[in-house]
């Protein structure tokens, strides 16, 4: 694979990746660095954890999932950084918030005891712990995203909380197989400007190049303006892993049969 002439450098912030990495969300950063190298994009990654300051600027923000205890640990500090993160989102910084990170980028999470953990409200979504007797949403998941040219995205989901979109919120994707936000309305994740929230891990970026390239291009546009483009380079390993995972999801996950979009 030949690296194209350099398309520039993007500044990637990986938020709390030592705390919020319960489903190998680390793979998203690894895949991003690998793909960027193949496309001729340089990556300046900074890892920001508890107590660290956010950098002055960013083109792409990543945050993964955590256990309940870990989400509680970062929630307060994340809320204090909420204003800046929302400002970045308004400025079209690209973002990917996965699972627990997606929940905390919403308005709030109400746990099983009825206690509300505040989120940063970047996405107009709220999440509630499952009522007694409800199971976790666990399994392969296949969705179709209308965002850009992302299209089919495949992954694995594992969440107890049920997430509901607010009146103005747009879903990231529509569920074909699996549960998605709540197992009831057929929506998956949320999109706000260039920020994407999703329950899909697996890790999600390595085998969904449409999504990965979408984020890379959005990050380049943030840095260099609306003309910035990437040339899609085929990656046979990513394509094969994607196809294999799609086949598994179609065979193994429940087909979503709800009607609401």
């Amino acid at each position: 694979m030949t690296a194209a002439s350099s398309l520039g450098t993007i500044r990637v912030v990986s938020l709390y990746d030592d705390v919020m990495n319960v489903y190998a969300d680390r793979g998203n950063l690894l895949a991003l660095q690998h793909r960027a190298a193949a496309l001729g994009v340089s990556v300046e990654a900074s890892r920001v954890s508890l107590g660290d300051a956010l950098p002055a600027e960013a083109d792409l923000v990543l945050i993964g999932g955590g256990q309940d205890r870990e989400q509680r640990r970062i929630a307060d500090e994340l809320v204090r950084r909420g204003a800046l993160l929302r400002e970045w989102a308004e400025d079209d910084v690209a973002m990917l918030a996965v699972c627990g990170g997606f929940q905390l980028f919403g308005r709030w999470y109400r746990d099983a005891q009825g206690e509300e953990i505040p989120g940063i409200g970047l996405f107009d979504v709220t999440t509630v712990a499952p009522p007694p007797g409800w199971t976790r949403c666990i399994g392969d998941v296949l969705v179709q995203s209308p965002v850009g040219a992302i299209g089919e995205v495949v992954g694995f989901e594992n969440h107890g909380g049920r997430t509901y979109l607010g009146p103005g919120a747009r879903p990231f994707a529509r569920v074909e197989y699996g549960f998605g936000n709540n197992g009831a309305d057929g929506t998956e994740g949320c999109v706000y400007r260039q920020a994407l929230g999703t329950y899909l891990h697996g890790s999600v970026l390595p085998k969904n190049l449409g999504l990965l390239d979408h984020l890379l291009e959005a990050a380049l546009r943030h840095r260099y303006g609306p003309e910035a483009r990437i040339e899609g380079v085929p990656d046979v390993y990513a394509a094969r892993a994607h196809d294999a995972a799609v086949a598994v999801a179609r065979r193994r996950a429940p087909r979503f049969e709800g009607v609401a979009r």
Partner: peptide
């Protein structure tokens, strides 16, 4: 059964397999 996922992982790790 997930040979392709593993091949992709090694590919990203900088050591793609000779065969899958």
């Amino acid at each position: 059964t997930r040979a392709d996922d593993l091949a992709l992982r090694f590919h990203i790790a900088g050591r793609a397999p000779e065969e899958t």
